[in-house]
Amino acid sequence: MSTFRGLCTAILFCLWPALSHAGNTDASVGTPVSSEELAKFFAIQPDGATLPPGQGTAAAGREIYAQRCAHCHGEHLEGIKEAGGPVLAGGRGSLATDRPLKSVESYWPHASTLFDYIWRTMPFDQPGSLTPDEVYALSAYILSVGKIIDDKQVLDAKTLRKVVMPNAKGFFDGSGPELDMYRINQSASPAK
């Protein structure tokens, strides 16, 4: 009997590592990383909590824009079709019309997205080459052309997160079922 129990224990013991693999956590694969190593990445959420140090103004941004952006997005942010650079300002009040013009000024709900996107991938022909100061300056320039901030405003981690975009309230969560598809023509439904 005791031999049998011993055998059972031995079998269980052998199975143990396999069983533990089936559990809910098993941290054996992968190499832990430090926050220093993760500092090479960024993603800026609307609260701006992870905005980097640095600052910039529209005046500085205008000059960088002329050198690095205008050949695709146009001197006046109007966009250049043949160069592929979309319009960056204008179109306010057009969203509910037959010819909506979606731009940073008219459409974007968060200023954080502007900083994140320019830093992430612009200029298109030299992606990832801008410093935080340059990105603050370019953001200030684009926002001031769109009359969202004053052209004297200094943008930094504190001020950028306070910028309220004109279309901030223009979006809603569309992830749920599209109940409008289930409307029945009123005249066709006599009783409520």
């Binding site: 969203l95 509910a96 909506p100 979606k102 940073v104 459409y107 974007w108 709900p109 968060h110 997205t113 996107y117 223009g170 979006f171 809603f172 969560d173 569309g174 992830s175």
Partner: peptide
């Protein structure tokens, strides 16, 4: 936000469709 959102007739747009 800027892209892959669905603009409706009333000028509002749907996120996360």
């Amino acid at each position: 936000t800027a892209a892959y959102t669905d603009l409706l007739k009333d000028g509002r747009a749907k996120l996360f469709t």
